[in-house]
Design a protein around this nucleic acid. Sequence first.
DNA 1: TTCTTGCGGAACGGATCGTTCTGTTCTCAC
DNA 2: GTGAGAACAGAACGATCCGTTCCGCAAGAA
Lengths: 211, 211
Amino acid sequence: MTKPLSGRKAQAARNDEVILKAARAVFLDDPGAPIAAVAERAGVGISALYRRYPSKEELLRKLCSDGLAAYIAAAQAAVDDLDAGGDAWPAFAGFMRRVADAGSTSLTIRLAGTFTPNEQLYRDAVHADELNHRLIGRVREAGALRDDIEVADVGLILEQIASVRLGDDQRTAELRHRYLALILEALRHPGRGDLPGPPPRPEELAARWST
Amino acid sequence: MTKPLSGRKAQAARNDEVILKAARAVFLDDPGAPIAAVAERAGVGISALYRRYPSKEELLRKLCSDGLAAYIAAAQAAVDDLDAGGDAWPAFAGFMRRVADAGSTSLTIRLAGTFTPNEQLYRDAVHADELNHRLIGRVREAGALRDDIEVADVGLILEQIASVRLGDDQRTAELRHRYLALILEALRHPGRGDLPGPPPRPEELAARWST
DNA sequence: TTCTTGCGGAACGGATCGTTCTGTTCTCAC
DNA sequence: GTGAGAACAGAACGATCCGTTCCGCAAGAA
């Protein structure tokens, strides 16, 4: 339609992207949306979806997998930054901003529990967790982070940021940055008092990935 | 069942409470839950619900109305505290903690858009908004709050806190206090830098109450 | 006993949704 | 030009879910 690149193959390749983009937008707006809504948003028929993914679950897994990959990329970049001698706080703050920006990551969170996970997905989650520990550990060692903040806290804080949704995507991103900036100030400087209650335990976090 | 208070009337009066409690729990867990789930949780039949509320929507309105009332009570108490000469910051922090504790308030948020509002509900919302302005205005005048924080910010921050849900109710409350304490530190002290982006506008917030 | 109130839960009718299926269009090899 | 097959749009299907109604029963009230 848009590009003069005709040829059935090119059209199909373009649809690959269009469909994924539509799916991200639709499920981000409503995680329980029907698959027909994705097709409509993408401007394609339903069969175009089923040609690519054998079931709705498979499509959801793909979206989640992509989101997790984006998260891993952000964490890896921050760790690399530190390895290259970058300052701890900018690396951490940049990581947080990047994750808050990635709609795919917040999609991953919203989709938790709506499908049965994958072996690959499980491995990715473990990998992300390792990177998290590396990153937070390094930042904390450098004294750039409140010392009563743990790795699991960071995950929950990112979820809270991702829960901000108002207006269109751009406005949502703007507001997320606003509240992330607020929290980052609290994270950076040692607090006047201790935080109440223990941080989340790993089992508590894992529990939400099963129905 | 529990109390020896038999007599049809007493049983019915008890059911009033049991049903509301069950409805709060069920819809808090899943805002789209079927009405049968409420009945099951309450240990009553479906007709016990329909004897009290003519439709599901009416029940949802009741829950929302109760939640809003709890919010108003908290705000009014804080304003009264200030009127009585209480210090600004403790009054504000106490208000935030009380709202974070009230499951009913977070239910009100989660239910937004799942039913068509009421005249009464609308008036309550306006009332809550007025109290918000009074409270935040007073706290800000007293210099106890970052001056780049507006009324609408407080609402969104409370929503973020309400989005924390992990484990049972008690654990959830504990974690909410943890992250509320974090944010309160950022709210209390003047920030090193300005917050990015403008705070939410009233129309933006109102938009989510329709469909 | 009879009447009324409250209730449990099956039954109903409509809507929703994932998946399959049919018919069609477009491309390319020959 | 033509036939094969890839890619697709969207109707059709079957299953499930859910709000609401309805029927029969129990238990106090008269």
